[in-house]
């Protein structure tokens, strides 16, 4: 498992670079706060990103991971991006943002030891993960849309039942 070892050796840099890349996608106002180097100021946003970063990398590297674990780790990250002010493409393009980082950091090493095929496989895994993220993104958006409908329905739930009964009563008479 030479390729896995190379990936593992680069985890720290790639994850850090990717987290940076994600932070860079936030509109100006947020970047400063998320990124602060001196004090490791975190906030839920930064934390969800880090949670996602580590797992995303492991999955790409080809670690033995169960899909539910991956999904769980990406869950809040994707959900967060789904309710932020982004276009869908912008929300999810961050997954692909790992590619240039991998190409810069990992690809040369892999080529040196003739593991190009393994590297390409890793990139394919990233593509699959992007598709997984797409599913999750859609699901999240659907949840929001559903929440809207449900909320309107719930606000008037009893009223609707009452109206229904009136109607039924009217028919019975």
């Amino acid at each position: 498992m030479l390729s896995l070892e190379i990936f593992r050796a680069h985890k720290k840099e790639v994850v850090a670079a990717w987290v940076e890349a994600v932070f860079a996608t936030y509109p100006f106002e947020t970047t400063g706060f998320l990124r602060t180097k001196q004090d490791p100021f975190g906030n839920p946003v930064a934390h969800m990103t880090r949670e996602a970063a580590s797992t995303l990398f492991d999955a790409v590297a080809g670690e033995d991971m169960h899909p539910p674990t991956v999904k769980n780790a990406l869950d809040r990250f994707i959900k967060l991006r789904a309710v932020q002010k982004f276009l869908p493409s912008q929300s999810l393009a961050v997954i692909h943002a790992m590619k240039p980082i991998l190409r810069e950091q990992v690809l040369p090493k892999m080529q040196d030891v003739g593991q190009l095929a393994a590297y390409l496989e890793a990139e394919s895994r990233l593509d699959s993960l992007a598709l997984l993220a797409f599913d999750m993104y859609c699901e999240a958006r659907e949840t929001v849309a559903e929440a809207r409908i449900k909320e309107i329905r719930n606000q008037h739930a009893q009223l609707a039942r009452w109206a229904q009964r009136l109607e039924d009563g009217g028919k019975a008479e």
Binding site: A24, P27, F28, T31, L87, Q90, A93, H96, A97
Partner: peptide, 19 residues
């Protein structure tokens, strides 16, 4: 993808009073 992500307002120079 990088270009897609980057299509957002550039980093403004002003402080909060001007945004």
């Amino acid at each position: 993808p990088q270009m897609l992500v980057a299509s957002r307002p550039a980093f403004p120079e002003q402080d909060w009073l001007d945004i």
